[in-house]
Simulated assay, not measured.
Amino acid sequence: MKNNSFRCFFLFYEYSTFTIPKLSRNIVSNDPQTIEHILKTEFDNYGKSHTLHDIAYDMFGDGIFVVNGNLIYTSITEKSKAVLNILKNHADSGKSIDLQDLFYRFTMDTFGDFDYAQDAIFRRFVNPLWRFTEKFSETGRQLRKACKYIDDYIYNMINNHRSELESKKKKVNNLLTLFINAVDDDGKKLNDKELRDVILNLILAGRDTTAQALSWMMYSIMTNQSVEELLLQEINTILSVEMPIPSYDDSKLFKYTTATFYETLRLYPIVPYCFKDNVLPNNTPIFAGEYVEYNLFIMGRDEKIWGEDAKQFNPKRFLESEDGLRPNKFKFASFHAGPRACLGQQLATLEVIVLVAMMFKEFKFELVPGQKSPPEFRDAFSFPMKDPLMTKVSYRTKL
């Protein structure tokens, strides 16, 4: 019976489209020069592989994650006000709040199908038989259901938006409008499938990474009293009770707050590792089908790169020193570099700085006792906390 089962499996393998990826080397580097070589100086030689595309296609399509290729400020402040209203409710009631969940809702309302699909796609990287197992497993069925829900959600968004533009009921100027109206050199517009891939990748990139960065930043501040004190000094110098919302020009003044954000990304990089393929500058050959990896989580704690205090949370390392020199804040490449530098870097930084300044101006934050410190992280494309970040919120000055 066992022999028959074994034979049937390989008959299925022989006459189906199911294939087993060949084993290949992964070359791992924590050298900043190597990372610059991959992301910047030799960018064209390090593409994203067919393997990555096949694994992630069901969810990400042909979006930016898997292929090679003053208005917003008002929106940020309005969303930040909504966050403060939620915090007020918890400060009034005395109930603790999961800050990670709050930040996910700040960047985009969460729904489980997005999270389930991402987790299922990530597990494909450690399951070379995923094409086979997902055909018959509950995981595969749930993934197909989740991807359909996501497709319906995005296509509905596109259709509704296009209807509004065509009916001219109101003028809508946003990123989706730009993509719908965009044309290539031949005057051809993006079709619905292309719009779907672009929009989904942008939604997930903006939602997950910013929410997770905010979560790790708040944890780092709450566990470093001296950092919180310096942060408050800066915030209270720029903002007042009468003017608790920073203007766009004010946002550029938050030097220490910005440094705290960069230091958070150094120790808790939201995209902790990446892999490409080709040849490294130290003459290590990478043959077809092989990869080179770098792990920003490890590099951010490397004393050879950051000094003896590499494991300490110290935002001052990103401020100008007495001789006027500023350390290279992109040594850890959290926003990548070169042609593939993160398109949302300025937006993400602005979102974080404005929200954190408004939050700390009005509220005190304290971790609920009994939680793991530092928090555990969950395996994913990005760097989410495994458990809720339960926090007690109170007023700094009760009005």
Rank of each mutant, 00 (worst) to 15 (best):
L253S: 12
L253R: 15
F254V: 12
F254Y: 13
K255A: 04
Y256T: 08
Y256N: 03
Y256E: 02
T258C: 08
T258H: 09
T258G: 07
T260K: 01
T260G: 03
F261C: 08
F261E: 04
T264S: 14
T264K: 08
L265H: 10
L265S: 07
R266P: 05
R266Q: 07
R266H: 03
L267Q: 05
P269D: 08
V271K: 00
P272E: 00
P272F: 06
K276Q: 13
K276M: 10
K276A: 14
K276C: 11
D277S: 15
V279H: 14
L280R: 10
L280V: 14
L280K: 07
P281L: 14
N282G: 09
N282H: 07
T284G: 04
P285T: 12
P285G: 05
P285K: 13
I286N: 13
I286A: 09
I286W: 01
G289I: 13
G289H: 09
G289W: 06
E290K: 08
E290W: 08
Y291E: 12
Y291D: 10
V292E: 13
E293F: 14
L296I: 05
L296R: 07
L296V: 01
F297N: 00
F297I: 06
I298G: 00
M299P: 04
M299G: 02
G300E: 05
R301F: 01
R301I: 06
D302R: 07
D302M: 02
D302G: 04
E303M: 11
E303Y: 01
E303F: 04
I305T: 09
I305G: 03
I305L: 01
I305N: 03
G307V: 08
E308C: 08
E308W: 00
E308N: 07
E308T: 12
D309E: 13
Q312D: 09
N314P: 01
K316V: 14
R317D: 07
F318S: 00
F318C: 07
L319A: 04
L319E: 08
E320T: 14
S321H: 06
S321Q: 14
E322T: 14
E322Q: 11
E322C: 09
D323S: 11
G324C: 04
L325N: 11
L325Q: 11
L325Y: 05
R326T: 13
P327K: 15
P327W: 02
N328F: 10
K329Q: 12
K329M: 11
K329E: 10
K329W: 11
F330G: 00
F330H: 10
K331M: 09
F332C: 09
A333Q: 07
S334I: 09
F335L: 09
H336Y: 04
H336G: 09
A337S: 15
A337C: 08
A337M: 11
G338W: 07
G338I: 13
P339D: 05
P339R: 06
R340F: 01
A341H: 06
A341K: 04
C342K: 02
C342G: 13
C342S: 09
L343R: 01
L343P: 00
G344E: 10
G344Y: 06
G344H: 05
Q345D: 02
Q345Y: 00
L347N: 01
L347K: 03
L347T: 09
L347Q: 03
V352F: 00
I353Q: 02
L355H: 04
L355V: 13
V356C: 05
M358Q: 02
M359N: 04
M359S: 04
